[in-house]
Design a protein around this nucleic acid. Sequence first.
DNA 1: CAGGATCCGTAAGGATACTG
DNA 2: CAGTATCCTTACGGATCCTG
Lengths: 138, 138
Amino acid sequence: MTSRAHTGVRSTGHTDERAPEDCPVREVLDRVGDKWSVLVIVMLGRRTHRYSELHRAIDGISQRMLTLTLRALVRDGLVDRTAHATVPPRVDYALTDLGRTLLEPLNALDRWAILHRDDIRAARERHDRARDPRPDGT
Amino acid sequence: MTSRAHTGVRSTGHTDERAPEDCPVREVLDRVGDKWSVLVIVMLGRRTHRYSELHRAIDGISQRMLTLTLRALVRDGLVDRTAHATVPPRVDYALTDLGRTLLEPLNALDRWAILHRDDIRAARERHDRARDPRPDGT
DNA sequence: CAGGATCCGTAAGGATACTG
DNA sequence: CAGTATCCTTACGGATCCTG
């Protein structure tokens, strides 16, 4: 997150790498597929939040990661940062119009996840049981 | 990829962590948000491929990563593996029905990326120019 | 309060060599 | 051909302490 400039495929030296058709999906995932971005986006999709609110709401995130994630989102024009010159300081984060448009495809993924999480879980257990039978119960 | 068991939020010791609403999106991203999975899925979305075909098509991927990615996808029931007992050996990979359903939300993301990649690029340049003005042209 | 600066462990992923 | 096995580098992310 600190300085990713590549598009998803890192070169080894030759410059002619090609994904299926340049695959824009990977571009999105490169900036939103990390551990926290979507969580932040979902939160801001509900309403504007200030830094401390996000920190409390997204349980488990460190200050460092929250800051880094927000910075990246602001940089990409998905999130708006508004610093109020009060004391103590107060900073509000909100989705931009662009950021809001991202909510739709994200919700599509969300619906898919809800619909098929059990299938995946089942497939995995089937698969694991096949290669590690463990006849008894230890 | 080798052994991720957590749901997206790692605990520090207390057990009451909560994402916005358990956020299933993150679940999907945990298994498909990595560097290669979607590329593979997209390729298999076009047609069945054998190992070597994928290796050549997805330029930049290492054997190790292709194998690991495929294994995870098979395990999750998104991809089917068919080994033909010929010599030389031949292994075909194809999307399962479940895997095919994932193509839709993925395409939604894809469309979003295509539609807004320029906005993001623009926002980023604006942002970067703001904090690193570089008046002349060095 | 809203971060910035550091330090550090882990895990993702690349390169390479080898095998059924 | 379709992988395995190993080694090694890096980048991601957590913990902690400090500041305007």
